[in-house]
Design a protein around this nucleic acid. Structure first.
Lengths: 196, 196
DNA sequence: GTCTATAAGATGATAGAC
DNA sequence: GTCTATCATCTTATAGAC
């Protein structure tokens, strides 16, 4: 594999495990067996490296979502598969979502990186919202749902669920969250007034 | 205010804004107008400081939840007030949940701190689960809900929602999440089979 | 592309005076 | 409790040889 690709991959792993500020060029260099100066050749500053990670993750996510849309037609199944992406990321070695990690250190992260993270986040929310609308059209999902709110809740809960799953090294924390999320959108109930 | 209390308060603010690894004793010292050596007198290592933050937050949270239980009886209203605590934290200057911040940098954070963070998280999940059971008993909440899953989803979504609200400086991201969460538990629908 | 060498500054932490 | 002084180490980053 090309050195630059190796650098990005290892840096991404560090971002997912300890965050952007808790690893150094030295950490990466030692893992690959090169010197920090070589990393600076590929990525002049840490901001460049962060941006490369953002681009890589957004590309990979877009590909994964495209694959879901190509192989599954049912809105419910699409949503479940989407949730599965987050579960899969956590499963690949107790890793958090790299975009969530970058979003947390916001104030100490380059502006362009922040923008990329926001695009990723909003992209997920919008995709879920669109899928919810499709499910409402087929009658699979509750008609009284606000797609925007559901999209935002799905992404928020999946990201937060990963934090919990990692803190407890407990897969069921992700699974429980996904079950309740899926349950919250499915039809099969009369839409009535609340008694709360 | 006592110096140690000032130190904890400022350190907590840094944890909420940039994370545990992105601030230094120097940052705190300059804000207070003392030297880093003085901070080391109160908190020998950064781990001690982190632990003090965890204790402070857990104490404050317990007090806030107790206040809710003392002033509100309805499970639905209690849940909504609980969600309000997270909204309020974000509102106090675009801050994330300190426990969520500490949970993210897990691998690079002292073991005792990790334990405290887990206790906080699980405490929130359990409280929501208990409140859900109470709401099911009164008929305000859906009877087919799994309280554990709901508890885990609430905490995950609230934590994740704060990350989103901060990334976009957008209050509605928290509000939308809270609305869908509350909607997901309320009764008023026939409990039927899913068509998803 | 990778190296050595180096810079300039930050970091957590300690010893000992006041 | 706070200070000065100091430490060893780590950090991002650059210059220039190979």
């Amino acid at each position: 594999m090309a050195t630059s690709a190796q650098i990005i991959e290892i840096a991404q792993e560090y971002v997912q495990k300890v965050g952007f500020h808790a690893f150094s060029y030295r950490d990466i260099a030692e893992r690959i067996g090169i010197r920090t100066a070589s990393i600076h050749y590929h990525f002049p500053t840490k901001a460049h490296l962060a941006m490369a990670i953002v681009d890589r993750v957004r590309y990979a996510t877009a590909a994964a979502v495209a694959e879901i849309e190509a192989s599954v037609a049912s809105p419910g199944e699409r949503l479940r598969r989407y949730c599965g992406l987050f579960l899969q990321t956590w499963g690949s070695g107790d890793r958090l979502c790299p975009m969530c990690m970058l979003a947390m250190g916001q104030d100490a992260i380059p502006a362009e990186v922040q923008g990329g993270v926001r695009d990723f986040w909003q992209g997920g929310e919008s995709w879920v919202a669109r899928t919810v609308r499709a499910g409402q059209a087929t009658g699979a999902f509750r008609r009284d749902l606000d797609p925007r709110s559901v999209g935002r809740t799905f992404v928020a809960a999946l990201e937060g669920g990963m934090v919990a799953a990692r803190a407890f090294s407990d897969r069921t924390r992700m699974e429980d969250v996904i079950e309740h999320l899926m349950d919250s959108v499915k039809a099969g109930r009369t839409e009535g007034a609340s008694t709360v």
